[in-house]
Simulated scan of single mutants.
Amino acid sequence: MLRTMLNSKIHRARVTEARLDYEGSLSLDPDLMEAAGLLPYEQVRVYNISTGERFETYVIKGDRPGSGTVCLNGAAARKGSPGDLVIIASYGLYAPEEIPSGQSILVWVDEHNRVARRKVDPWSA
């Protein structure tokens, strides 16, 4: 049996843009992607704290490092508005023997979507 485990999470990022007429995805500041270990085109789940909306999409690199970009693109633009707080999470499937050495990357941001704190948390107790 495989288990679905949290790979990484960006907690309480603020949506900076919503662009309906753009290819579907979530544009993120490259610094946030690096901090959370996210790759371009990796699937993520987005939880909108402000509205309760939840959806899946994929990540693409935002315009420039340090920009704080969190932009909902395409259909995702209907799931939130600039100013909304969101959690961005990635998950993976793992075999039981992988669990003891696994870990999640947790990233908290400030009001400008800059990394305020980063923690690597092991899955095993």
Rank of each mutant, 00 (worst) to 15 (best):
A35V: 07
D31N: 10
A95S: 10
E98S: 11
R45S: 02
A18Q: 02
I99W: 12
C71R: 08
L2K: 05
R54N: 12
R45D: 07
Y94V: 09
A89Y: 07
Y47W: 12
A13V: 05
Q103P: 02
K119F: 15
P100G: 15
L2D: 07
E56T: 13
A35P: 00
E97D: 15
D63S: 13
R12H: 15
V86K: 00
P40R: 12
R12Y: 15
E23R: 06
R54V: 15
Y58P: 00
N73K: 06
S67W: 08
W123F: 12
V44C: 03
G102F: 07
I88S: 00
V46I: 13
A95N: 10
G24K: 12
C71K: 06
E42L: 02
I87Q: 00
N73M: 11
E97Q: 14
I88R: 00
E97K: 14
R114Y: 14
A18W: 07
W123C: 01
E56A: 13
A116H: 06
H112K: 12
D110N: 11
A13Q: 02
Q103T: 11
A36G: 01
E23C: 05
S81G: 05
K9Y: 03
S124H: 14
R117E: 14
W123Y: 13
C71N: 08
G66F: 11
G74T: 08
G62E: 04
N73L: 13
V44K: 03
G74W: 07
L6R: 09
S104E: 07
V115K: 01
V109N: 01
P65I: 02
Q43N: 05
D31K: 06
F55I: 09
G68N: 02
K61W: 09
G62D: 06
D110L: 06
L28W: 03
Y41M: 10
K61R: 10
A125S: 11
R64W: 11
L38A: 03
R114V: 12
T16N: 05
G62S: 07
I105E: 01
P30I: 04
A116N: 06
T57D: 04
D21E: 15
L38G: 00
R45P: 03
G68R: 00
A76G: 03
A116M: 09
D84I: 05
S25W: 00
D29I: 10
L38I: 09
K79Q: 12
S81V: 08
